[in-house]
């Protein structure tokens, strides 16, 4: 007769590595990332990723395009969700635009050189 409690049994055995499939370990995911990417010549792309859910990316894109006088598009990425893509280096403008419209500056991360 076996007592269940005495069995050596690892209750977490089938859990695997708790951090195994968590890609953003140690990072807070709720940042808004503004990145820049070089294209050919002196052309650049600005991407905005991690927009909070309560904001409509479509409307924001429209506002950006009008405000910054640039073109842009909304890209659906499998991992990153919807990403706003703008032509040219709009990083500073985007961050100041977002701050002016009530977003916390501490939640915005501007990357790039």
């Amino acid at each position: 007769m076996s007592v269940q409690n005495l069995n050596s049994y690892d209750p977490f055995a089938d859990e695997g590595d708790p951090l195994g499939d968590n890609a953003d370990v140690g990072s807070t995911a709720d940042y808004i990332h503004i990145r820049i990417q070089q294209r050919n010549g002196r052309k650049t792309l600005t991407t905005l990723q991690g927009l909070p859910k309560q904001y409509d990316p479509k409307k924001l894109l429209k506002a950006f395009k009008k405000e910054f006088a640039c073109n842009g598009t909304l890209v659906d990425d499998e991992k990153m969700g919807q990403v706003i893509q703008l032509q040219g280096d709009q990083r500073a403008k985007i961050s100041s635009f977002l701050v002016e419209n009530g977003l916390e500056k501490s939640t915005i991360k501007v990357h790039g050189f």
Partner: peptide
């Protein structure tokens, strides 16, 4: 203290 892992974000299609 723990530091953020390096994560490259969204990479736009260039080229």
């Amino acid at each position: 203290r723990s530091v953020n892992a390096i994560k490259s974000g969204f990479q736009a299609q260039v080229g």
